[in-house]
Amino acid sequence: MHLDDVWLRYRRGGSWVLRQVTAELSAGEIAVVLGRNGAGKSTLLQLIAGVLRPSRGRVAGRPAAVGWVPERFPADQPHTVSAYLHAMAAVRGLRAAAAGRAVDGWIERLGLGGFRDVKLPELSKGTAQKVGLAQALLVSPGLLILDEPWEGLDAATRELVPAIVLEVAAAGGRVLVSDHRGETVRLPGAARWTVADGGLAVAPAEADQHCVVEVAVSAADLPGAVARLREQGHRVLRVREEVGS
């Protein structure tokens, strides 16, 4: 999908929030959206999600299934966690059985099992944010947009976000993540989109950037695993015993 010379302002005659924005996001690509508070990151993300319409220019090639996680989940609603997610699954066109599987799967994975029958306004900020994350993933998104997804999340779920992002990208989805707290160091290899003064500067992912992946292998298979990794051109930096094993 691509943005062609996109301009946006909220009111006719008002000042431009975004100007001459041109960018492209290919299938499987991850981009981190950076910028100071008020620079227009959330506006850009809502424009790409289809929530806002450009005043000029166009957003083309947006995938059919878009998952958007807003910066603050709107918890002031009279539904329980389970009822809300089932309703959103139905809105996304899932039939009852498929909706049940999707909802149960994400409730389990995000640790929401104990909150199924809790009403949304009674949730803590972090738990509500998990519900916001779950609703965006009920169908496999062709475009996943995460607006400050780490806000309020517990340590376990913070670790889970990069894994989810990589899974969506591996399945051919495009991912955009905004961040002003430096959490996106957890997403090495992502392109950098910087919003400033209404414009967008795009820096592609560094091709020669290397990342460290911690992998646990069976002790019996350790020599073979190390050899295979080296054969594939990877550098094995260190071998250690798994803590707690």
Binding site: G50, A64, M88, V91, Q135
Partner: peptide, 9 residues
């Protein structure tokens, strides 16, 4: 806005 994204249009 979430409903608009989820509904697809």
């Amino acid at each position: 806005r979430l409903a608009r994204v989820a509904a697809g249009s």
